[in-house]
């Protein structure tokens, strides 16, 4: 039992960095759901595209270029964010905008189709095999805990937490204080009313998709650097988990998505540490089912009233 506490701290740290990524993706789900009430099933695929674009940028620059690492990562992020922003806009324009007034299930099926399409699109372009991502940030900070156990804090994971923290603060400020942020909050309260008041709702919705895609892309690039490999199918499972995080925190609520992401990441790594790593996906899916059954509004969500 002496190892219990250090292992717990280690898993907590790993869970935090994983949860930070889930939170980034979950924001895309939750904002889209908050405004147009649909589950953007293809969102996980946008994250995967972001990771691929990051790798393409990294390969184009090369690891031996002599540029400082932060500059390389910044370039990867910049390119990835630009491309996925366009992806997010285009997906919305093609697959969702024509279905704005359709029943929810029609839009969901369209989103599933888009998800399958994007997976195979990247698979066709870049191959379906695992691609190795050269590690940019190696090394870790070791913390001696007691006599026999030490905690390793990988720099790359620390970077994830740092970047995500900065982005979350920026996003919160943006939503609270900017014109577009105000408009999107208005739209999530009442889309029709916002339109009557002269808000260009089409533009707000497009913006939401682009913002979600951009955040997911950042997550994709960061996780690709940390994990070191990617394939076109990573988006599906990450998407489902991020959706779980969004539901856990209360879908439609941005702070909820952040909270839910961190909670899910920690729960998953703790399950992997104490039960078995094979069961970590089951934990995530099981959590999803349980929340939807017992508290569909999530931790911070508002109850939805069904109207005739």
């Amino acid at each position: 039992m002496t190892d219990f506490f250090p292992l717990f701290i280690q898993q907590l740290f790993n869970g935090l960095s994983l949860g930070a990524i889930y939170a980034l993706i979950a924001i895309g789900y939750t904002m889209v759901y908050g405004i147009i009430g649909m589950i953007n099933f293809a969102h996980g695929e946008i994250y995967m595209v972001g990771a691929y674009v990051g790798l393409v940028a990294l390969t184009a620059i090369g690891t031996q270029s002599g540029l400082p690492i932060w500059l390389i990562i910044a370039a990867m992020l910049a390119l990835s964010v630009t491309v996925t922003g366009v992806y997010g806009y285009t997906v919305e324009r093609i697959a969702y905008r024509p279905l704005r007034s359709s029943p929810r299930l029609v839009a969901l099926i369209s989103a599933i189709g888009m998800s399958i399409f994007l997976q195979n699109w990247v698979g066709l372009g870049q191959g379906t095999r695992d691609m190795a991502v050269p590690s940019l940030i190696s090394g870790a900070y070791t913390l001696q805990m007691g006599e026999s156990f030490e905690i390793t804090i990988a720099w790359s994971r620390l970077m994830i937490i740092g970047v995500v923290l900065v982005l979350m603060i920026a996003l919160t400020l943006f939503i609270q204080h900017s014109r577009m942020g105000r408009a999107s909050r208005a739209c999530s309260q009442d889309l029709q009313m916002a339109e009557l008041l002269g808000i260009n709702t089409d533009r707000v919705i497009s913006f939401t998709f682009v913002l979600g895609a951009v955040l997911a892309a950042v997550g994709g690039v960061l996780i690709a650097i940390t994990v070191g490999k990617l394939n076109p199918f990573i988006g599906f499972i990450a998407g489902i988990k991020a959706f779980t995080a969004a539901v856990l925190g209360g879908i439609g609520s941005i702070p909820g998505a952040m909270l839910g992401g961190v909670l899910l990441g920690v729960a998953e790594t703790l399950a992997a540490g104490y039960i078995s790593s094979e069961y970590k996906d089951i934990v995530a899916f099981g959590l999803l089912v349980l929340i939807l059954l017992f508290r569909p509004t999530g931790l911070l969500g508002k109850p939805e009233v069904e109207k005739v």
């Binding site: 093609i94 697959a95 359709s102 599933i112 189709g113 399958i116 399409f117 994007l118 997976q119 699109w121």
Partner: peptide, 12 residues
Amino acid sequence: LAFGFVMVLMMV
């Protein structure tokens, strides 16, 4: 790829 595309197309 075609399946995904057809699903979107059919819905739209």
